[in-house]
Design a binder for these strands. Structure first.
Lengths: 136, 136
DNA sequence: TATAATTCCTCTAGCCACTAGAGCTTCAAG
DNA sequence: CTTGAAGCTCTAGTGGCTAGAGGAATTATA
């Protein structure tokens, strides 16, 4: 049996976040001590680790809900899990693409070495979209 | 003089967002019509365009506050604007780096073509961080 | 000019995934 | 038995909007 603090240390999930996940229904309400403190089992630990790892990989809480549900039903088709992950991969890739466009534009405008704001490319570019090289 | 709707169309900023910016102090409170509706000038238009463009480039509202302030003081050193933009560029780059790590991991795990969840690499990997190739 | 359609107003609440803090209770070590 | 750490619940705040209610003003059409 682990206290919430021990669970937190073992999984790297902060205590208020654990309680938040419980509220959101991602983890079951654990048993309580006589004094009403949460007491977790190994099952609770591995479920929370799963969640932690999924969050690290950027899955949303809703996605995780689905993935957890799948993990409880080993006979279901793998394609369900696959499509959640593939969709997420697409999201990540489109975010990367967008950020790379930003990066290019920011690199360009930060090259400016004017003396004061009056001639500064940063300010000028922001004031006038027409000065941009690419769309964003 | 523009109504808020006209301003919205010309800048591409949604109406509630314009009112939100006003509340946040990014744009001045405009004059009002007799019937209490907002009436904007060309100055209001260009200030909002500046904000829109800065948001498109991913600057935070706080950054924009600083950039707007600089743009009103053309005699200030360009380096102030430069450092806001350079810091933002760094943020963007580190976000890209992080997303690329995610992308690699997600690509790897979505390659799985098992039949059911019991053998699915997606679920397996989420349950056990040890199966990951890289840190994240 | 009357009416209908559209736009605008303020205010409150919701989104995501937490995080912080107040004020209190319980637990574990010495 | 005391003390200090750790736990409890509850509320509110973060960023950057977005949605909706309920009403007033403006504009377009008949």
């Amino acid at each position: 049996m682990f206290s919430i603090g021990q669970l937190s240390k073992r999984t790297g999930v902060k205590i208020p976040t654990i309680r938040y996940y419980e509220q959101m229904g991602l983890i079951d309400e654990p048993e309580r001590s006589e004094g009403n403190q949460r007491r977790y089992t190994k099952d609770g630990l591995s479920r929370l680790s799963f969640i932690r790892h999924s969050r690290d990989l950027g899955f949303s809480v809703e996605d995780i809900r689905g993935l957890l549900d799948l993990s409880q039903h080993p006979e279901k088709p793998c394609s369900d899990a696959h499509s959640i992950a593939a969709q997420h991969l697409q999201d990540v890739q489109s975010r990367i693409a967008k950020l790379r466009r930003l990066e290019r534009e920011l690199k360009r405008i930060t090259k400016c070495d004017a003396g004061n704001v009056a001639a500064c490319a940063v300010i000028e570019t922001l004031a006038d979209h027409g000065l941009c090289e690419t769309e964003h």
